[in-house]
Amino acid sequence: MHKTQKDKPFYFLVTGAFILSLFVVGLGAYTRLTDAGLGCPDWPGCYGFLSVPQTQAELQTAQAAYPETPIEPIKAWNEMIHRYIAGSLGLLILAIAVMAWCREGRPKLLPSLLLMAVCFQALLGMWTVTMQLMPVVVMGHLLGGFTTVSLLWLLRLRIQPKPLFYHHGFTPNLSLSPKYLISLRTLAIAALLIVIGQIALGGWTAANYAAVVCTQLPICEGDWQGDFQASAFELIQPPHSSYEYGVLDYAQRVSIHVAHRIGAMIASVSVLMLAVLLWLKPPLRCYSLWLIAFLSLQVTLGVINVVASLPLSVAVTHNLVGLLLLIALVTTCYRLVCDCRCSLEMKYFASESSTHG
């Protein structure tokens, strides 16, 4: 029996942190989409206070300290609630790392990576404010959040008391040849990398306020090919006093939007190819179903965003479903890696047995 099978408190802590991380990503998307990223002009407080200034004296002090920044309480609260919950997640991840290193048998690498990721994520959160929503920082903050969730999920898979893949008497796919499993694993990893690239494109689209520049489907209206601007993808943009509401021109935003749509097509094809191959193998069909379900929902939400001009609830859900699709791919890759390892080990032991038999 694996040592983690008796380590339920650690498992429940990781599970709680994972659930909280989903809320943090959702709140981050809501904060960004309500233009509350600069709801507080400083960090980690708000107008020099630990909370949003409320009394008349606090409001006067805040306005005197930041005379060029009007106080908008709703946006400020959106930003601060996100910070409070993100900070709570950071403390949970710190506890996970400490617990992992204080007891033999617990994984060490993933908790360490998580702690580094959440520390860097905090820096990105600070830079988001101090650098006035610089797009590369905003995109990095989004990717950092997705990375944190994925690492927590991987850690949960690693330590769950009863392995996910062996419920109800299920065993690894030893009936499949190692060569086939390796090919399937390679395709799954490729699909995962493509989806990560598409998520980055989505973050770049949002950070540059390019989500609603195209209103036609399936490709943008006008001569988008002739107007395509490679400069739209330069990560380091010219300095501005603020990047709120975007600083790129119309042609550059169209270029970003179109690239995001083309990326969505490529990502959809790669995920569908993987889902079809998984469906052909009955033990792996559940992964195929999850991939198809999340992909279909994500494409539908993307279309609604264009047709309905980015409704807030749909846009937030689009972020979360993209995250769920990423988690489904991470789970599939993890499963296939485990199966490949088991299959190769069984092949090796069978070869050794025949040699010494």
Results as ranks from 00 to 15, higher is better:
Leu272Asp: 00
Leu295Met: 14
Tyr209Asp: 03
Gly125Pro: 10
Lys281Ile: 10
Met265Trp: 15
Phe49Arg: 00
Ile262Trp: 04
Gly125Leu: 03
Leu142Gln: 04
Gln56Arg: 07
Gly203Asn: 01
Gln216Trp: 01
Met116Asn: 07
Leu323Ile: 01
Gln225Ala: 11
Gln5Glu: 15
Ile196Leu: 12
Gly125Tyr: 04
Leu324Lys: 11
Leu295Gln: 15
Trp43Asp: 05
Asp35Leu: 10
Val149Ile: 15
Phe10Thr: 01
Glu234Cys: 08
Leu142Tyr: 09
Phe12Ser: 12
Gln63Gly: 14
Leu336His: 02
Val337Cys: 01
Cys46Asp: 06
Leu22Lys: 06
Gln132Ala: 10
Lys3Asn: 06
Glu79Gly: 03
Pro163Glu: 13
Cys338Lys: 05
Gln237Asp: 00
Arg83Phe: 05
Trp204Asn: 06
Leu33Lys: 11
Asn173Leu: 06
Asn305Trp: 03
Ser231Thr: 15
Asp227Thr: 13
Pro41Lys: 11
Ile81Lys: 00
Val276Cys: 13
Gln198Thr: 01
Met265Glu: 03
Val25Ser: 05
Leu157Asp: 08
Thr69Asn: 11
Ile19Asn: 05
Ala76Val: 10
His168Lys: 06
Asp227Glu: 14
Gln298Lys: 10
Pro172Ile: 05
Asp339Asn: 13
Lys8Phe: 10
Ala29Cys: 03
Ser354Gln: 13
Thr55Ile: 07
Leu89Gln: 08
Ile262Arg: 04
Gly144Glu: 07
Trp279Ser: 14
Gly37Gln: 13
Val337Arg: 14
Gln160Thr: 14
Ser242Asn: 13
Val271Gln: 10
Leu155Arg: 08
Ile189Pro: 04
Ser177Met: 09
His82Arg: 01
Ser241Met: 09
Asp42Ser: 10
Val137Gly: 11
Cys342His: 15
Asp339Glu: 09
Leu323Gln: 12
Ala308Pro: 07
Gly26Cys: 09
Ala259Tyr: 07
Ile304Gly: 00
Leu310Phe: 04
Ser255Gln: 07
Leu326Cys: 11
